[in-house]
Design a protein around this nucleic acid. Structure first.
Lengths: 337, 337
DNA sequence: ATAGGTTGTCGAAGCGCTTCGACATCTCTT
DNA sequence: AAGAGATGTCGAAGCGCTTCGACAACCTAT
């Protein structure tokens, strides 16, 4: 293992000079710099992470807490995680993967041990039990998701409320009066996950304004659950012509069941999905959808965090504006018969 | 930030004693141990990760390299990643998330800097460019996936060749003579990803033995691609009655298209999928499938790695035996008409 | 020509921990 | 009763780096 001292010796300078070449925190003459860089290359030197962390009290690691649960759409999580990792690298940080398993203790452990310089939390609940810890520490953090009380926190999220409103707006705008919302699994609501509830709020308040009716039903993914849910919906509101789906694993079942029941999309019923674009275009009907901007969320989170770590940056809530793309699954409501 | 020295002072012992209490590397009297543990708790002490890494040259971090690509089934990756992270924690390790982006350089960086004690590599290609580096370093590593040459490496993987064989066996056993294989996206084969090619090998050699015909077609996921692929298959082999699908995003499109064409599953055609059980049971037809044991792979990988780090453990290739579960998508081949 | 500023380099201290050898006590043997 | 072996504790060295203050050496500007 090559050390700084060896590089220094090889280049004929002192250790501190090598350190300053590496960090750029003091000016170094061009000739010296080049000599040092040459030595670094020749010896294949890599600074030791532990020593660096100890001396500088900076680990250059960002912790990412992802949930264990699988009741949320996994590809979105993954996409965020990957965006976080790659963005972090461009700023010189590595990413430590923490699962929800440890719960709030993980926050304590990471903060206390200096393992990471900062954290990103996913799957935030409205009253998340990690928040008090976060507020009481001076370690920078960013939430992906919005808790009930955001004072003293930095959050990045899609504007779910606006997302819900946008869906209703679109459907109401093309004449639908009875809208059913296929939501996430019941457990998601029971946990009071922010995004699910906020979407619903947005949906409902816009519906009130637009004078349309909304029926919300949580739904586990899969065909059987969807069949049951759908039956109940048409039972209760036979006039339903618009669907909003916020549950990726319910999308395909819904389309298949509608088809099976002889309800044509978009002639008889319209469907708007809240899902990544990739899902929307790969479905059996190209779906009108509001995109979940997973990459953007991950990137934003890291960039805010890095800003904070650099002493720039402030606590703030960044809501990404939703965008609805009209595709083949929505159209004018059929004339009431 | 509480330090070891402060704990020592608080407990009225020397720093080294506290260290030995923590590590258990020397015997400590019960009374002293308790006093120290008490102090640790009272002060809320957490050992500093950097200092520890520096002094012990052990970071207690395992690096996990996951691919960037999204042409493989993401939930499986995620499941492995989560299994790795949770299993690692039970052994006192944290997980560093590396994306494929950096390529082989990431291996150099992590090895050289002592950031991680060991690595787990996913998405292994037959001639993976990271392998030479891995072989030339003494840092323990485990591959999830099988390269062409495994000498000096430890690998964990599903026995894909046996998986392919098993699928054919099942279909041939219930009378199917013409089998079509819907594979992963073409890019996966072009990259020479081990699992895809091995499955195919297993499929083909067993087919030869069983005297059945196999037609393999790579397929991007989604409806349009699947429609095209399916049309070509029936065009070339109208008598096809058995399908093997190794591409989660083609499963549902396939079922929908078959239904649409009036081919009943399993009466007219049988479908065997290679996918996680969850996908198999959530599909519109409960699928006969060979499970991809994602969790098991992740767990195994970590356990082998930890064994190596503890000085136990050897280089070896662990192939997990595939298991086929018969569900509702496969049945006797229709009598030839 | 000289005070005052830059610029580039160095030495040394110290980050918080692990670990080794030393040593003081005990507890058996014989 | 004395030596041998456990057992429990301590002090000190050192892991590889960052960073601070010091100080030459070189510029200006007067």
């Amino acid at each position: 293992m090559v050390t700084l001292a060896e590089v220094a010796q090889h280049a004929g300078v002192s250790a501190s000079t090598v350190s300053y070449v590496l960090s750029g925190k003091r000016s170094i003459s061009t000739t010296t710099r080049q000599r040092v860089e040459q030595s670094i290359r020749e010896l294949g030197y890599h600074p030791n992470a532990g020593a660096r962390a100890l001396a500088s009290s900076r680990s250059n690691i960002i912790a990412l807490m992802i949930p264990l649960r699988t009741d949320m759409y996994v590809p979105v999580m993954m996409e965020i995680a990957i965006a976080v990792a790659t963005t972090a690298r461009t700023h010189g940080y590595d990413v430590l993967l923490l699962t929800g398993e440890e719960g709030p203790d993980a926050v304590r452990r990471v903060t206390g041990s200096g393992l990471a310089d900062a954290m990103i939390l996913m799957d935030v609940e409205l009253e998340d039990e990690r928040l008090p810890l976060l507020r009481s520490t001076d370690q920078p953090s960013v939430l992906i998701g919005l808790p009930a009380d955001t004072t003293g926190l930095t959050c990045v999220d899609l504007d779910w409320s606006a997302t819900g409103a946008l869906c209703v707006e679109h459907l109401a705008g093309i004449g639908h009066r009875d809208i059913a919302v296929i939501g996430e699994a019941p457990a998601v609501y029971e946990r009071h996950t922010g995004f699910a509830e906020r979407t619903l709020d947005g949906l409902r308040s816009r519906a009130r304004e637009a004078g349309v009716r909304v029926l919300h039903r949580p739904c586990e993914g899969g065909y059987d659950a969807m069949a049951l849910t759908l039956a109940r919906i048409f039972d209760e509101r036979p006039g339903t012509t618009g669907f909003v789906v916020q549950n990726e694993s319910a999308v395909e079942p819904l389309l298949a069941l509608l088809r099976q029941q002889g309800r044509a999309v978009p002639e008889d019923v319209s469907v708007v999905a809240v899902c990544p674009d990739q899902v929307a275009v790969q479905a059996s009907v190209r779906l009108t959808s509001v995109a979940v901007p997973a990459q953007e969320m991950g990137r934003h989170a890291v960039e805010h965090l890095v800003a904070k770590l650099d002493g720039r940056g402030t606590d703030e809530v960044v809501l990404i504006a939703p965008e609805l793309t009209v595709r083949a699954s929505s159209g004018p409501a059929p004339a009431a018969s």
